[in-house]
Amino acid sequence: MEKIMFIETGMGIDVHGQDITKAAVRAVQNAIHFNSMPGLRSVLPGNSLDNMKVNVKLAVPCDKEKLDSEVVKEALPYGQVTIEVMDGGMMTTSGVVIEEKGDKNDLMYIVVASVEVGY
């Protein structure tokens, strides 16, 4: 990325089911949910959202090999998206196991996201 215009951060949790992809998608959605960048198109090369680059950094506590990057990319409406996964986040108890919700144990997965937007 030549120029970073915005960095948005968020957190996502899968309370039941221990699904690292679900927590990551929620982290990305949390990062971008309350943002509007109406002037961004005017500074992008060619004034096109197709030229926007989005780099997503995900701090995950476990199951990196189970993270579906393509599903995470679908959470972003525009741009050329790249995903970078690193150690971080948190696992902590939810206090209960609910088998009907897919729980294998009482852990909830917490993922932290940084979404860099630029060109």
Rank of each mutant, 00 (worst) to 15 (best):
V28T: 02
A59E: 05
I13G: 02
S48A: 11
Y119W: 14
T21K: 00
I110F: 04
M86P: 12
G10K: 03
D19K: 07
M37F: 14
M91H: 05
G10W: 00
T21I: 02
I7D: 05
N55L: 08
D19Y: 04
D63T: 06
M11I: 10
K22E: 03
G10E: 04
E70G: 14
V112W: 01
D19M: 03
Q80I: 13
V25H: 00
V15W: 01
M1I: 14
P38F: 06
D87G: 09
E70N: 15
S42Q: 15
T21V: 03
G79T: 05
V71D: 09
V117C: 03
P61W: 01
G102A: 07
L76P: 04
Q29Y: 11
G95T: 10
V85Q: 04
F6Y: 15
A113K: 02
N35E: 15
E100W: 12
D63W: 02
Y78M: 13
I98V: 15
V81K: 06
E8G: 07
H16G: 03
V72D: 02
M91Y: 06
A24P: 01
I32W: 02
E65L: 10
A24T: 02
V54R: 04
I20A: 00
D68I: 09
P61I: 00
V81I: 14
G46P: 13
N35V: 15
N51D: 10
F34L: 15
A113I: 07
V96N: 12
G39M: 13
K64A: 12
G10Q: 05
V15P: 05
D68G: 09
E84Y: 10
V25Y: 02
S36I: 13
I13Q: 01
T93D: 08
E70M: 14
Y109A: 04
V115Q: 00
K53T: 13
P77R: 12
L44Q: 06
I20Q: 01
E74I: 14
L40Q: 09
